[in-house]
């Protein structure tokens, strides 16, 4: 970066393209295709360890605290957070999720599942969980009332989410601007128009 070019840099920033993630940024760079792919592959190979770091940070925990809860050293936590996904063991994940007070579940899904299928899968899970809630509430009036209220809340929230998503696809209608001035101004405009005619 030459110091002389800094004047133009600021102007360039205002116009420079913004990127949603690092892979997108790498794709936009003028690098050899094979190098770009290698970099993106490496970023993707650390998805799991990245998720662990983000979850720990969300809990407001540092590596030392996580290590204390895990019953291991801070350096083990550090190594885990930089490991490639293939090298992370289930045992390490179980210990880590315990330290974060979280439950870990393993899900096996068919390859190349479409987004629509994911939505359907979640819908089936919601149905299953609601059925469990209903069966739990049977025989307990207070709980039945709470579950009933929860159903209404769910219904409103789901409709709102789906409605918002659908609305975002449709183009916005352009409304014509209707301007009405004070009566004396309106009269003046009318008189002026009549004079011209």
């Amino acid at each position: 970066m030459h110091e002389g070019s800094e004047e133009t840099q600021m102007g360039m920033w205002a116009m420079s393209k913004k990127h949603k993630n690092v892979s997108d940024l790498i794709k936009s760079m003028d690098l050899p295709k094979e190098q770009k792919q290698q970099q993106i592959d490496y970023i993707n190979s650390r998805r799991l360890s990245r998720l662990l770091t983000v979850m720990r940070t969300q809990k407001g925990m540092n590596q030392q605290k996580a290590a204390e809860k895990c019953g291991c050293t801070q350096s083990r936590i550090s190594k885990l957070e930089y490991k490639e996904d293939r090298k992370v063991s289930i045992g390490e994940l179980l210990d880590y999720s315990d330290a974060l007070d979280m439950e870990m579940s393993v899900v096996f899904l068919p390859k190349k599942l479409r987004i629509v299928d994911h939505v359907k899968l979640h819908a089936a899970q919601i149905e299953h969980l609601l059925k469990r809630l209903v069966s739990l509430s049977q025989g307990d009036k207070a709980m039945a009332r709470a579950v009933d209220a929860f159903h209404s809340e769910c219904l409103v929230n789901m409709l709102s989410i789906i409605g918002k998503s659908q609305k975002s696809m449709r183009p916005r209608k352009k409304h014509a601007l209707n301007v009405i001035g004070p009566p004396e101004v309106e009269q003046f405009i009318e008189e002026e128009t009549a004079c011209v005619e």
């Binding site: 970066m1 030459h2 840099q9 420079s16 393209k17 913004k18 990127h19 940024l25 003028d30």
Partner: peptide, 10 residues
Amino acid sequence: WELSKADGFE
């Protein structure tokens, strides 16, 4: 959040 490259970064 979004990412932006400074001129010369590339």
